[in-house]
Design a protein around this nucleic acid. Structure first.
Length: 874
RNA sequence: GGGCUCUUAGCUCAGUUGGUUCAGAGCACCUGCCUUACAAGCAGGGGGUCGUAGGUUCGAAUCCUACAGGGCCCACCA
């Protein structure tokens, strides 16, 4: 065996083996199911650090469940991501000189499917490199036929239940993608802008009214000027009219308490077509709506000679013209929040459009209760409860239509001046005719009379069904998969899509399965770089995920990611984390090399080995209990760290050193057997974190049948813990540590056996066999006095004081002892002071007072011992 | 603007109901070792008045208040 672990060949070998053995495939059976549905990545996405973290956690959970003999099912898949994917397809077409507008819907979709087939699923292949144990036979794409049909079914159903409606409303418009966005898809950013003070001349020629605006290009849509009714500056102006500059259109001055007299000049221009609040005021006072913008955010004919110009290009030009007209009073710098598109980054334009909405007020109720009242669903960490609650309680109707082609086309069919909602065109024709019939109309419709809505549904309107639709639970609500696997067990995702996705899945779960979609939600943190910056392409600070696997091995990367990422905490990623993972893999590799290198002989088991193994069993059991507890709390990092220490410190550093035979000496059969069994148990517990390494070693550790894999080995159960032995052992460790320190400080040769003489002052006992095995002889004798250049001194360990005999420098030692004496006297005084405090003695629990008394007694004892030693020396 | 949350060693973080075991872990760092599993290692070591200022208490990293500085979420101030 090589002296270092070399992951690359091993990883591909075992992944292929796992697939071949179908170890990740799950079928309904009588075992307890453990289900995770993957947060489907964008079908054309590539693996980044966030995915790696997220999917490693899922894999850890699913592999552990598998070892616990549960029926583990991890459903993988991808999302069609309508805006993002459509944008990419449009860009590629543009490169080839094809404009989307010149294509029919069918032609465009053909290109989109081509793209999907070309790049789709690359990310799933990359997940395999990471070791993800998904049931690939269940791979699902949100545009698969049954997934598509599920979405349509749900739309029709919700429409029929009255939850979906069509409305002419102010919506968020992305002028780049030329589609509407939901409120959640708008990201507000602070931008440096200007506040323009524009003068609107009174029609009666009595001067002008000054209005402050950040968007002078919208003056073409102005329909009124509004002031606060209590603003004394304007009370005599109410009822007058002013002229909109440039277009010279006459508009009234009105008043409403909405206007803040403190801001700007206290005058607000009302532009109902381009601002949510203006629309509200416009509606209140029955004002006209003038839309001065085109879909691509260029100005239209209302803007006269600015027609065709982009809104941001027009802005300074309009300011210039106003300046030349003498109507621009001043321009101030102004910081304001601008809504931008989550996908394209374009500045979002509020627009009045006919759109489809999902009414949320009723649907949301069970989703609130599930997390905050019944506790059916738990968020990890729970600090997200508040955020979740706030969002759901203030939820607004969801705009679910998108002006795109890539996605599920809205199943609404228009004819005459009305529409029907139906699963298919045929069904729509029938419905239209039924409706005509019941209205006693003679009119009859055929397919050519009906025209389907051009829009598609928001991507999240398909992903909110994911935990149900991957098991086909919408179309066949009683099939055996959905009944068995749903509700799923755990969901692992980032907090950035808590609203987009998690909350909505909970809503749809209660609507369509009458129960929660998952029991636990593990929210990971964001992966950031060492400086705490978000990883992004433009900063170039995002490491190549697959490159890391190539360099360090998948196991090492997994460990590196997990070691320092508590749930919900951002992870400041640094490559050194992977190094730590690699070092750990190597440590285990070498421990394995050691135990498999021994010759076995039929000799008696040394006492030290026997004790060591008994101790390690206790240590293992107590650590396993701890690990189970950490898993139960979803503290994966802590579980891993405990295991890391168990393997590195306890197994390698202590146990192996204790049982290791002398050079080229054989080992007794019992010890070797025990060491192997312990290693095997450690490998199983480690397997969820480091699947490849553990499989390799597990296979080499014993003869395994072709079909045997650590993936389906049995998770060990905890056993009894010998507390007394644990205590003795840790005491012995402390003594050894103290002795080593002494040896280092006194610069004794490493190999030199240090004769120590210990005096037991209290339980627990040191274990002489352990001391001896590790290079310290330890006749238990009491040293009464110091000889020449020899001192009986006390070495402090955590709890006890052990007299040690060693060669030392007397002067130095005296100095040290005097310092120690002073310290102890001060300490004693402090404790005595506390003990003479009546309030303390009366109020503190008995045990606490006893501890203080013991401290005092110990200190006194120490002082006396030091004084005695000093008197002998001087 | 509203709400939530955080501040503990150089870094990333544990620290449950205030009380022995509370001032910890991993990494990094320093010193000495190429000792026959592992230098991707071994042995040892130094680091913190727990953000600041008050308060409650016999006792505060822990509870309360204010302040300072981060972070997150939400919100229509033109």
């Amino acid at each position: 065996m090589e002296t270092a672990y070399n992951p690359s060949a091993i990883e591909s070998k075992w992944y292929a083996y796992w697939l071949e053995q179908k170890l990740f495939e799950s079928k309904v059976d009588s075992r307890e199911p453990y289900t995770i549905v993957i947060p489907p990545p964008n079908v054309t996405g590539v693996l980044h650090m966030g995915h790696m973290l997220n999917n490693t956690i899922q894999d850890v959970l699913i592999r552990r469940a598998r070892l616990q003999q549960k029926n583990a099912c991890w459903v993988p898949g991808t999302d069609h991501a309508s805006i993002a994917t459509e944008a990419k397809v449009v860009a590629r077409l543009k490169e080839r000189g094809i404009a989307k507008e010149t294509l029919s819907r069918e032609e465009f979709l053909k290109h989109a499917w081509e793209w999907t087939e070309e790049y789709g699923g690359v990310i799933l292949e990359q997940l395999k490199r990471l070791g993800a144990s998904c049931d690939w036979s269940r791979t699902t794409f949100t545009m698969d036929q049954h997934m598509y049909d599920s979405v349509i079914e749900v739309f029709v159903d919700l429409y029929e239940k009255g939850h979906i409606y069509r409305g002419y409303r102010m919506v968020n418009w992305d002028p780049e993608a030329k589609t509407t966005l939901s409120d959640e898809e708008v990201i507000y950013q602070e931008r440096e802008g200007n506040l323009y003070y524009i003068q609107y001349p009174y029609t009666d020629g009595s001067g002008a009214l000054t209005v402050a605006t950040t968007r002078p290009e919208t003056i073409f849509g102005d329909v009124a000027i509004c002031v606060n009714p209590d603003d004394p500056r304007y009370t005599d102006k109410l009822g007058k009219t002013v002229l909109v500059p440039i277009v010279n259109r006459e508009i009234p001055i009105i008043s409403d308490t909405y206007v803040d007299a403190e801001f700007g000049t206290g005058c607000l221009k009302i532009t109902p077509a381009h601002d949510q609040n203006d629309k509200a005021i416009g509606d209140k006072y029955a004002l006209e709506v003038i839309d001065a913008l085109n879909a691509d955010a260029t100005l239209n004919a209302y803007a006269l000679h600015y027609e065709g110009l982009d809104r941001f290009e027009a802005r300074p030009k309009i300011a210039e013209e106003l300046q030349s007209l003498g109507l621009l009073l001043k321009v101030e710098n102004h910081l304001n929040k601008v809504g931008t598109s989550e996908r394209t980054g374009a500045v979002v334009e509020p627009r009045l459009l006919d759109q489809w909405f999902l009414k949320m007020d009723e649907l949301v109720k069970p989703a609130i209760d599930a997390v905050l009242k019944s506790g059916e669903i738990k968020l990890h960490p729970s600090k997200f409860d508040n955020t979740y609650k706030h969002w759901l309680e203030n939820i607004r109707d969801w705009n679910i239509s998108r002006q795109l082609w890539w996605g599920q086309q809205i199943p609404a069919f228009y004819y005459d001046n009305t529409f029907v909602v139906a699963r298919t065109l045929e069904e729509a024709v029938d419905k239209a005719n039924e409706r005509a019939q019941s209205a006693k109309s003679d009119k009859r419709y055929t397919a050519v009379d009906l025209r389907q809505d051009e829009d598609v549904l928001d991507t999240w309107f398909s992903s909110w069904l994911w935990p149900i639709s991957v098991f086909n639970g919408i179309l066949e609500p009683d099939n055996k998969d959905i009944n068995y696997y749903y509700p799923t067990s755990d969901l692992v995702t980032g907090p950035d899509i808590l609203f987009f996705w998690v909350a909505r899945m909970i809503i749809s779960g209660y609507e369509y399965r009458k129960t929660y979609p998952f029991k636990n939600v593990y929210l990971t943190g964001l992966v950031r770089d060492k400086q705490g910056r978000k990883m992004s392409k433009s900063l170039g600070n995002s490491p190549d995920a697959l490159g890391l696997i190539d360099t360090y091995g998948a196991d090492a990367v997994r460990v590196g990611l997990l070691l320092s990422s508590a749930a919900g905490n951002d992870l400041l990623f640094d490559e050194s984390l992977c190094q730590q993972g690699r070092n750990f893999a190597n440590k285990i590799w070498n421990a394995f090399r050691l135990i498999t290198s021994w010759e076995v002989a039929w000799i008696a088991q040394p006492e030290a080995s026997k004790i060591g193994i008994e101790w390690f069993n206790s240590q293992f059991n107590s650590t396993l209990d701890f690990i189970e507890d950490q898993y139960a709390k979803y503290r994966i990092s802590d579980a891993l760290m405990a295991l890391y220490k168990l393997i590195w410190d306890d197994y390698c550093a202590w146990l192996l050193e204790l049982i290791k035979p002398a050079y080229q000496q054989p080992i007794d059969a019992t010890t070797r057997q025990e060491a192997f069994e312990l290693m095997e148990r450690l490998l199983v517990v480690l397997h969820p974190f480091m699947p490849f390494l553990t499989e390799e070693l597990w296979q080499q550790l014993d003869k395994r049948a072709d079909t045997e894999s650590i993936c389906v080995a049995h998770w060990p159960s905890s056993g009894p813990v010998n507390q007394e032995l644990m205590s003795q052992f840790s005491h012995t460790q402390a003594v050894i540590s103290a002795l080593r320190t002494l040896r280092t400080e006194k610069q004794l040769k490493p190999k030199e056996l240090l004769d120590i003489q210990t005096q037991q002052t209290d339980q627990p006992q040191v274990i002489p066999e352990v001391l001896s095995k590790l290079g310290f002889t330890s006749p238990i004798t009491i040293v009464e006095s110091a000889g020449e250049n020899t001192l009986s001194l006390r070495i402090e360990t955590t709890e006890y004081y052990i007299p040690i005999e060693a060669q030392i420098n007397l002067e130095e030692e005296v100095e040290k002892l005097q310092a120690e004496l002073e310290y102890q006297r001060g300490f004693l005084e402090m404790v005595n002071q506390k003990l003479s405090n009546k309030r303390f003695v009366d109020n503190a629990p008995e045990a606490v007072v006893a501890v203080e008394r013991k401290k005092a007694a110990d200190a006194l004892e120490k002082i006396q011992a030091i004084e005695a030693t000093l008197s002998k020396l001087t």
